[in-house]
Simulated assay, not measured.
Amino acid sequence: MKFSELTSDQWYDLLPYLDTCLIPVSGLVGDEPPHEAAERIAETGDWLQPLETAFRGRTVTMPAYHYINVAEKAEIERIGAICGRVKQLGFKYIVVVSGRADWAEAPAGADLILKPEESGMQPDTNKLRQAITELWKQEGRSR
C-alpha cells in the first residue's frame, strides 16, 4: 500500500499486518535536467513496483526521498536517521529501494537496500521478491 491510501483509523487497525516499510530513494542531486530527473525517478519506480505488487497488504511505501547524493556518507546517514524514525512508527522492517547503483554504503537504519549492482541494470522481479522473503525468514530463525 502507499502511504496516501491509509486513513488514520486504517493505520492503527492494519499496523499488526503492515510490518514492512519501503522507502524509495531516487538519488537526484539537483543538476539533472527535467528529462534526466524523470528517468531517475522512473528507474527507482522500476525497482519498487514489483515489491508493491507482490507484497500488497504487508508493505507500506512511504513518500520518495528524491534529493540525496548517495555517494556522500553524511547524506547516507541522513537516510539512516529517517529509517530509524520510520521504524519507531511500528514497522519491523525498513527496506530502502533505489534505481541508483552508486551507493557509498547502506543506511544504518535500513534492514535491507535493494538497488542495481551496476548502472542501467534492470530489476529481476524474482530476486527482489526473494530478498524481501529472506528478510522475513531471518526473523523467524532468530526466535
Rank of each mutant, 00 (worst) to 15 (best):
L22Y: 03
P50I: 05
Y17D: 15
M62S: 13
V29A: 03
Y17A: 06
T61I: 02
I68A: 13
I23M: 11
H35Q: 13
I79L: 12
Y12P: 02
T59E: 00
A42I: 01
G45V: 04
E36H: 12
D9L: 10
Q10G: 08
Y67I: 08
Y65Q: 15
R56E: 12
E75F: 08
G30M: 06
L48P: 12
I68E: 04
D13L: 12
W11Y: 14
H35Y: 10
W47F: 14
A71P: 00
Y17E: 15
A71Q: 14
T7I: 05
A54P: 01
I68T: 13
I82L: 06
A38T: 02
C21V: 00
V25Y: 04
S8M: 11
E43Q: 11
H66W: 15
Q49Y: 12
T20H: 02
I23K: 11
D9F: 09
G30Q: 05
F55H: 09
E36F: 05
S8Y: 11
A64D: 06
T20N: 04
F55L: 11
L22G: 01
G27M: 05
L48T: 07
T20C: 10
P24E: 00
I82F: 06
A38E: 14
G45L: 09
L28N: 00
Y12K: 11
G80H: 11
A38I: 00
G27Y: 06
L14M: 14
Y17V: 08
D19A: 01
D13P: 04
Y17W: 00
I41N: 05
E77P: 01
Q10H: 07
S26D: 11
E36K: 13
M62F: 15
D9M: 13
G30R: 01
I23V: 08
P50G: 00
D9Q: 13
L28R: 00
R56Y: 08
W47P: 06
N69K: 13
G57D: 06
E75W: 04
G80T: 02
I41C: 07
T44L: 03
I41P: 02
V29P: 00
A81T: 05
T20W: 04
E52C: 14
G80I: 06
L48R: 05
P34S: 03
T53V: 08
Y17N: 08
T59R: 00
I68N: 00
I68S: 07
L51N: 04
G27V: 09
G45K: 01
E75Y: 03
